[in-house]
Design a protein around this nucleic acid. Structure first.
Length: 790
RNA sequence: GGGCAGGUGGUGGAACGGUAUACACGCGACACUUAAAAUGUCGUGCCGCAAGGAUUGUGGGUUCAAAUCCCACCCUGCCCACCA
C-alpha cells in the first residue's frame, strides 16, 4: 500500500499547471469541423475591486461544462472578455483623477490574473474589450445599420435625468424613482435623445420566449416587462371642438359605464381641449404634476388628484355627455395618454370618481360582489347588449362605435444616448437645420478623443475636446456644422459581444458569417438574474434585427440560460463594500488553493440558489481534496472498482443537468469508501478524469504522478458498465399501514412470495398483524412491501 | 397590489410518489501528541430510561404509500408596480 506521497502544496501545484496550460495553449479553440458547444459566461464589468467570491460560482460551473463537453468530443468555445465602457469606470476615473482608459487597463489586467489563478479554461486568444476601437467600431456600425433601417431615431421627449451623475437614464436604470447607480432621485426633463425601436419587435420578442430553454421565472419577467395587452382603440368626440380623443381600453365591454374621460398631464393637445375659464387651474395642475418625481406619483396612488377641464366628450355608446378631466394617475407614455373611466369596474377610476363625486354606472352584474367589480359577468345597462356575457360583448360594442381591436405593449423604446464620455461615440453629424448626416462606414471607428476633462456638466465632456470638435472636410462639404457629442449606452456594446468572440480579430465585418453560423446560438449561457429585462432583452432584440435583415441565420442568441445564485455574506446578507462582508478570492486561493474554492462553490448548494458564504465550508472542501490526494493505492479493491461505475454515471448526469452540488457529494461518498477500502491504479486514473472539471490542478497532478506524460484533459470521458451500477443486494422496506416496521437485505432478484414470507416472519412486523388479515399488501420490487391491516 | 422563486436538523443542504434528514459544516467522545494544531475512529435531527412516538411552514384532500401531486392559507426573498 502506498499513497501519492506527502502533502500536496496547492500554491506550487496551482501555478505549475496553470503555466502548463497556458504554454501549451491547451484550451484555445482551433478551427475544426464537427459538433460544437458554445459555453458562455456573462462577461464581467472590470471594476477596481477585482473579482469577488460570487464571480467564480458561475465561472466554475461554465468551466465544468466546457471541460465536460471537450471530453465528450465537442468542439468547445469558452471565451471571456470585458464590458469596459460605462459610468462606473468614468466615475472611478473622476474620483481617482486617472483617465478611464488607464484605469480599465489596470483593472482588466488584474481580472485576467485572477481568472487565471482560478484555473479557468478560457480561450485567452479571444479576450475582447468593448472599449477598444477595434470592438466599438462594430458597435457604431450597428448603430448605423439600425438607423438606415428605420430602427434608430431621434426624438425630444421626457427622459429620466439623474442630477448627480448628470446623465439621462434608461427606464431599466431607474429603480423606484431613483438612479440605479448613485441612488439620487431621478427627475423628468425634456431632451433630444436617441432611441432604438425595440417596440417594433415587441411581438417577436414575446413569442420567441416560448421555445427558449430558460428559467421560467426569467421568461415570465420578460413577458411582464414587454407587457402585451389586448383591447380596443375607441374615439370620443369633444363637444364644441374638432378634436377627438382616442383612448385604449382592455375592457371595451364596459363602454356603457364610461362616465368620464381622463387625460394625462403630458397629453399633447391638453391645453387645446381645456375650456378658457379652466385654463389657469389646469396649467397650475400640470406644473405641479411635472414637478412630482415618479416616486411621489406612485406613493400617492391611494389619493389621486386631478382637475376638470371644463369640456365634455360624448360617449359613443350612450350618446351622453361626459366630463373630461386631467389627472396624473393616467400615464403619458402608455397607450394614448388618455383613458375612458369606468368607475364601477376599475379600482383606480372608482377611487377617483368617489373623491370628485363623478357618476358611477354599473354595467356588469356584480351580484354579491361589492363595487368596483373587475370580474366577468352579465352585461346590464348596456342597451341591446344587456344580457350578454361581458367578455364576449367587447368586440361587438367596439364594432358598434367604430372602434378597433388592437394590442398595446408596456415596453418602451430603448433610450441609447448618454451625455457622458466613456462610451462609444454616436457616429453622426448635424447640419445647420439639425438634419442628420451619418458618418460613413468606411470612416469607422469614430475614435473617442483622449484630450478631455471629464467633470460632468450636463453636456458631453466630448465637447471639451478640441480635436473632436473639428469637423473633417468631407463632412463639412456635406453641410455638417456640428457633431453628436453623446455616447452610446453600454448595453448597446453588450448586446452583441457574444458574436464577436467567434471572430474577434475580424476587421472586415462584425464577425464572419460562416463562423457565426457554426458557433451560434450560444448553447449554455450563465449569469445573474439581474439582467433579465436589460441585457438579455437587448441582446435578443439586436439578434432579431440582424436576423430580419438577413445578416445572420439565427434569431435567438441564447438557447439555454442558467442563472447562478448570489453568494451572500456570512450572515445571509447581500455582500457589499459598505457592509464590509465582501470575500476576495485571492485570499482563499492563497490559503486553500483554487481547487478548494472551486469545489466549495459547487458544493455549497443548488447552483441557482442564494447561499451564504462559509469559511468552514471551504475548509471542508480542502479536507476532501487532501483525502482524495492521500488515497492508498492497492492492487485489489473490488468494492471501489465497482463503485466507480456508479460515480461515472452520477457525475455525468449531474453535470449535464447542472446539479453540481450532488456531483460533489458523490465524489465525497466515493472518496470515503476508497479511504476505507483503498483504490487501484486504474480506478484512481478514472477518478482523476472525473474530478478534473471541478479540481483541475489536483487532477493533473494525480494523473501526472500516476505515470501519464500527457495532460489529463486529453483523456476520454470514462464509460460505465450498466451492469455494475445495480447493487446485487437491495434493502427492502417493510411497512404496515405505511409505517416502517423493519428492513430486509435480500438479493435483487428475489421473488415476491419469498419477500412476503420473510417479512411476516419478522416479529416487529407480525405483531402488528395479529388477528388481522395479512393477505392485502402492496409490493414494489427491490423497494418496499406495505401490508394493509385495515 | 401583481408576478416569480422558495419554506426539510444547530447550519448549507439530499431525496422530488416508495426506508425523510445522503454529503458537508458544527458539536461531543476517543486515538495520536509533553501539549496544541492537523489527522484518524466513533457518535450526533426531536421527545422518551426504553419499548416506542411525533416530525419536511399551517390546514384540508388524493393514494396502500405524500417533503414530493391537488386546494386554501401563512411566512421569507427577488422582480415589477396607477400600464387603463
Amino acid at each position: 500500500m502506498k499513497s501519492l506521497g506527502g502533502k500536496l502544496d496547492h500554491q506550487k501545484n496551482d501555478i505549475k499547471w496553470q503555466r502548463y496550460w497556458l504554454k501549451h495553449k491547451l484550451f484555445a479553440t482551433r478551427p475544426r469541423k464537427g459538433k460544437k458547444k458554445y459555453i458562455l459566461d456573462m462577461f464581467p464589468y472590470p471594476s477596481g475591486d477585482g473579482l469577488h467570491v460570487g464571480h467564480p460560482r458561475g465561472y466554475t460551473a461554465s468551466d465544468i461544462l466546457a471541460h465536460y463537453y471537450r471530453y465528450k468530443g465537442y468542439n468547445v468555445l469558452h471565451p471571456i472578455g470585458f464590458d469596459a465602457f460605462g459610468l462606473p469606470a468614468e466615475n472611478a476615473a473622476i474620483k481617482k483623477g486617472v483617465h478611464p482608459e488607464v484605469n480599465i487597463k489596470k483593472n482588466t489586467k488584474r481580472f485576467m490574473e485572477q481568472l487565471k489563478m482560478l484555473g479557468f479554461s478560457y480561450d485567452w486568444e479571444r479576450v475582447i474589450n468593448t472599449s477598444e476601437p477595434s470592438y466599438y467600431r462594430w458597435t457604431q456600425w450597428l448603430f448605423l445599420l439600425l438607423y438606415k433601417n428605420g430602427l434608430a431615431y431621434r426624438k425630444e421627449s421626457y427622459v429620466n435625468w439623474c442630477p448627480k451623475d448628470k446623465t439621462v437614464l434608461a427606464n431599466e436604470q431607474v429603480v423606484h424613482g431613483c438612479c440605479e447607480r448613485c441612488g439620487s432621485q431621478v427627475s423628468q426633463e425634456k431632451r433630444r435623445q436617441w432611441f432604438f425601436k425595440i417596440t417594433e419587435l415587441a411581438d417577436q420578442l414575446l413569442s420567441g420566449l416560448d421555445d427558449l430553454d430558460w428559467p421560467n421565472g426569467t421568461k415570465e419577467l420578460q413577458r411582464n416587462w414587454i407587457g402585451r395587452s389586448k383591447g380596443a382603440d375607441i374615439e370620443f368626440k369633444i363637444n364644441n371642438s374638432k378634436l377627438k380623443i382616442k383612448v385604449f381600453t382592455t375592457r371595451p365591454d364596459t363602454l356603457f359605464g364610461a362616465t368620464y374621460l381622463v387625460l394625462a398631464p403630458e397629453y399633447k393637445d391638453v391645453l387645446k381641449i381645456v375650456a378658457p375659464e379652466c385654463l389657469q387651474k389646469v396649467e397650475d395642475y400640470i406644473k405641479t404634476a411635472n414637478k412630482k418625481t415618479e416616486l411621489e406619483r406612485v406613493a400617492n396612488n391611494k389619493d389621486k388628484t386631478g382637475v376638470f377641464s371644463g369640456s365634455y366628450a360624448v360617449n359613443p355608446a350612450t350618446n351622453q355627455e361626459i366630463p373630461i378631466w386631467i389627472a396624473d394617475y393616467v400615464l403619458g407614455g402608455y397607450g394614448y395618454g388618455a383613458i375612458m373611466a369606468v368607475p364601477a369596474h376599475d379600482e383606480r377610476d372608482w377611487d377617483f370618481a368617489r373623491k370628485y363625486k363623478l357618476p358611477i354606472v354599473e354595467v356588469i352584474d356584480a351580484q354579491k360582489n361589492s363595487l368596483p367589480f373587475v370580474g366577468d359577468g352579465k352585461l346590464i345597462n348596456s342597451g341591446k347588449f344587456s344580457g350578454m356575457v361581458a367578455t364576449a360583448g367587447g368586440s361587438a360594442i367596439t364594432k358598434l362605435v367604430g372602434g378597433k381591436l388592437t394590442t398595446k405593449y408596456k415596453l418602451r423604446d430603448w433610450l441609447v444616448s448618454r451625455q457622458r464620455y466613456w462610451g462609444a461615440p454616436i457616429p453622426v453629424f448635424y447640419d445647420k437645420d439639425d438634419k442628420i448626416i451619418l458618418v460613413d462606414e468606411k470612416d469607422l471607428p469614430l475614435l473617442l478623443p483622449k484630450d478631455v476633462e471629464f467633470n460632468p456638466t450636463g453636456e458631453s465632456p466630448l465637447m471639451g475636446s478640441k480635436k473632436f470638435k473639428q469637423i473633417p472636410l468631407k463632412y463639412k462639404k456635406l453641410g455638417a456644422v456640428r457633431r453628436e457629442y453623446d455616447t452610446l449606452d453600454t448595453f448597446v456594446c453588450s448586446s452583441w459581444y457574444f458574436m464577436r468572440y467567434v471572430d474577434n480579430e475580424n476587421n472586415k465585418s462584425l464577425a464572419d458569417l460562416k463562423k457565426l453560423d457554426y458557433w451560434l446560438p450560444v448553447d449554455v449561457y450563465i449569469g445573474g438574474t439581474e439582467f433579465a429585462n436589460s441585457h438579455l432583452l437587448f441582446a435578443r432584440f439586436i439578434t432579431k434585427v440582424l436576423y430580419k435583415l438577413g445578416l445572420i441565420n439565427f434569431d435567438e442568441p441564447f438557447k439555454k440560460l442558467q442563472h447562478q445564485g448570489l453568494v451572500l455574506g456570512d450572515g445571509g446578507e447581500k455582500m457589499s463594500k459598505s457592509k464590509g462582508n465582501v470575500v476576495n478570492p485571492d485570499e482563499i486561493v492563497e490559503g486553500y488553493g483554487a481547487d478548494a474554492l472551486r469545489v466549495y462553490e459547487m458544493f455549497m448548494g443548488p447552483f441557482d440558489q442564494y447561499i451564504p458564504w462559509s469559511m468552514a465550508g471551504v475548509e471542508g472542501a480542502k479536507r476532501f481534496i487532501n483525502r482524495l490526494w492521500g488515497l492508498n493505492i492497492v492492487s485489489k479493491a473490488l468494492e471501489t472498482d465497482r463503485a466507480i461505475h456508479k460515480l461515472i454515471s452520477k457525475v455525468t448526469s449531474d453535470i449535464e443537468s447542472l446539479h453540481f452540488n450532488t456531483a460533489v457529494s458523490s465524489f465525497m461518498e466515493f472518496v470515503n469508501l476508497a479511504t476505507d477500502k483503498g483504490i487501484t491504479l486504474k480506478t484512481f486514473k478514472t477518478l482523476a478524469i472525473l474530478v478534473s472539471p471541478f479540481a483541475p490542478h489536483l487532477a493533473e497532478e494525480i494523473n501526472h504522478k500516476l505515470g501519464s506524460r500527457k495532460s489529463v484533459f486529453v483523456s476520454k470521458w470514462p464509460e460505465f458498465d450498466a451492469k455494475l451500477i445495480e447493487d446485487p443486494v437491495v434493502t427492502i422496506a417493510v411497512q404496515v399501514d405505511g409505517k416502517l416496521r423493519a428492513t430486509l437485505d435480500v438479493g435483487r432478484d428475489i421473488s415476491e412470495n419469498k419477500v412476503k414470507s420473510m417479512a411476516l416472519a419478522i416479529e416487529s412486523v407480525s405483531k402488528y398483524l395479529i388477528n388481522k388479515d395479512n393477505s392485502k399488501y402492496h409490493y414494489v420490487p427491490r423497494k418496499i412491501i406495505n401490508f394493509i391491516s385495515k
